[in-house]
Amino acid sequence: MAKQELAPVVEATQTVGPIGHLKDFAERAARYVAAGLDGADNTKEAYAGDWKRFNQWCLEYNCSPLPADVPTLVGFVTYLTELGRKTATIRRHIASIIKAHKLAGLPSPSTEERFKVFMEGVSRVEGVRQHQAPAFTLDHFKRVI
């Protein structure tokens, strides 16, 4: 996903009391915006791969990835379930699609009620309870030391 430039939030002439211009804060806040867009390295790599997979699927089925509509997202999720992907993996794919739409300033089809109902069905039919790792006990700790 290509980073989108953010439009200035305030006019450069707008002042805030004796502190100065809001532009001063906007310039210093840029690093926080960049960190919010970037995310963790593993997440960026996973989202990039998921977005690439979605784009390839859209190309193959002649659908628009951006903006995507509900039938496109439903088709892609169905495709992932038929490949045997776990629900958590599917949700990560959806998160990458949501992120792409947010960065482009577009509404995500995942917020529509009919998609939410579809995902509830996917979770009930395909969902598998994730296995929790056993607790790290005092015996384990002693063996590690």
Rank of each mutant, 00 (worst) to 15 (best):
F136Y: 12
F136S: 08
K102A: 08
K102D: 15
A88P: 03
F118M: 07
W51F: 12
A46S: 14
G49H: 09
F118K: 02
G49R: 14
L103P: 04
K44W: 11
T89M: 02
S108P: 07
V74D: 05
P67T: 04
W51P: 11
Q132C: 06
W57S: 09
T137M: 09
V70R: 05
Y47W: 12
A95D: 13
L138F: 07
D69P: 07
V128S: 11
T78F: 04
Y61F: 15
R53H: 14
E60W: 08
E112C: 04
T137H: 04
F54A: 07
E45R: 13
P67S: 04
S108G: 03
L106H: 07
V122S: 01
R114G: 00
E112V: 07
E45T: 14
T43A: 10
D50F: 14
L138I: 10
A48W: 13
I98N: 10
A88R: 03
S123E: 15
K102I: 06
S96E: 08
S108R: 05
G105I: 10
L103S: 08
I90R: 02
K44S: 11
Q56R: 06
V128R: 02
Y61D: 15
Q56E: 15
P71R: 05
R124F: 05
E120I: 01
L59W: 12
I94E: 06
R91Y: 00
V128F: 05
V125K: 05
A46D: 14
T72V: 14
E45V: 13
A135Q: 07
K52M: 15
A88E: 08
R91N: 10
F115Q: 01
G121L: 02
T111M: 06
C58R: 06
R114F: 00
K86I: 00
K52P: 11
L66C: 11
D41Q: 14
A95G: 08
V74S: 01
T81Y: 01
T137D: 10
S110N: 01
T81E: 09
K102L: 09
G121V: 00
N62P: 12
V125W: 06
Q132E: 15
R53D: 15
W51G: 09
G39D: 13
S96P: 07
L80T: 01
T89D: 05
K116F: 02
V70S: 07
V70K: 00
A95V: 01
T43D: 09
A88M: 04
K116V: 11
V70M: 04
E126V: 08
L106W: 06
W57D: 13
G121R: 02
L73S: 05
R85N: 12
S108H: 04
S96H: 00
K86Y: 03
G127Y: 01
A68V: 09
E60D: 15
G105N: 11
R85W: 05
G121E: 06
E112F: 03
K99T: 09
E113L: 13
N55E: 15
S96K: 02
I90P: 06
C63H: 12
